[in-house]
Every structure is written in structure tokens, then in C-alpha cells.
């Protein structure tokens, strides 16, 4: 019964992970890239909490998840700050127009 539950968890973790990977692979918009990153980190979070539930060690999983959520928030804040600065400088949020460092 327990392993059946975890196989359901695993299926959805993989599905959500590949949804985010698809978003990051396809899109040229920087906001969409960050949204894909968020989706991928959500799938990592679900994997951590479900493995914690499987090994009866949910409090350690909660401690790890709190760190993970903070890292996520920091990454998104920094990425959006870079996006707004880049939009002010270049007037575009297209990834393929980030050419100013090209040699």
C-alpha cells in the first residue's frame, strides 16, 4: 500500500518536472523561463516531502523544504531584478537578444 502511494507520487513528480523542463526548453521569454524554474523546484519539493513521508521522517523533510523555499524566493527575486534592469537597458525580454556580452 505504501509503495503504491509513493509510485503515484513519483509519477506526478516526473510529470511536473518535465512540464517545467518543456517550458524552459521552448520559451524565449525570461519570465517564462523563471516560471519553468519554479515548476521544476515545486516538483523537487514534492519529491522531498513524499520521500520523507515514506521513510517516516517528515520533520527533517520539513526542515529541508524550508531551506528550499527560501532558495527559490531568492532566485526569483534576483532573476526578476535582472529582467527589469535588462528591459530598461535594451527594451526587450527576449533571451536571444541578450547579445551585449558576445565577443
Amino acid at each position: 500500500m505504501m509503495s503504491y502511494t509513493f509510485s503515484l507520487d513519483w509519477f506526478f513528480v516526473t510529470l511536473i518536472f518535465f512540464t517545467g523542463a518543456y517550458c524552459m526548453a521552448v520559451s524565449r521569454n525570461i519570465v517564462k523561463q523563471l516560471i519553468g524554474l519554479e515548476i521544476i523546484s515545486k516538483s523537487a519539493l514534492i519529491a522531498v516531502i513524499s520521500s520523507g513521508a515514506l521513510t517516516n521522517n517528515i520533520n527533517l523533510a520539513q526542515a529541508v523544504i524550508i531551506v528550499l523555499i527560501l532558495v527559490e524566493a531568492v532566485i526569483v527575486a534576483t532573476g526578476l531584478a535582472l529582467l527589469v534592469k535588462n528591459y530598461r537597458l535594451n527594451g526587450s525580454i527576449d533571451l536571444e537578444k541578450l547579445m551585449s556580452l558576445k565577443g
Binding site: S50, G52, I58, A61, Q62, I65, I66, I69
Partner: peptide, 9 residues
């Protein structure tokens, strides 16, 4: 999952 702290965060 009985993880209220992580849920609140």
C-alpha cells in the same frame, strides 16, 4: 502530508 510548517512557508 502532516507537514504544517512547510505548508505555511
Amino acid at each position: 502530508f502532516n507537514a504544517p510548517w512547510a505548508g505555511v512557508f
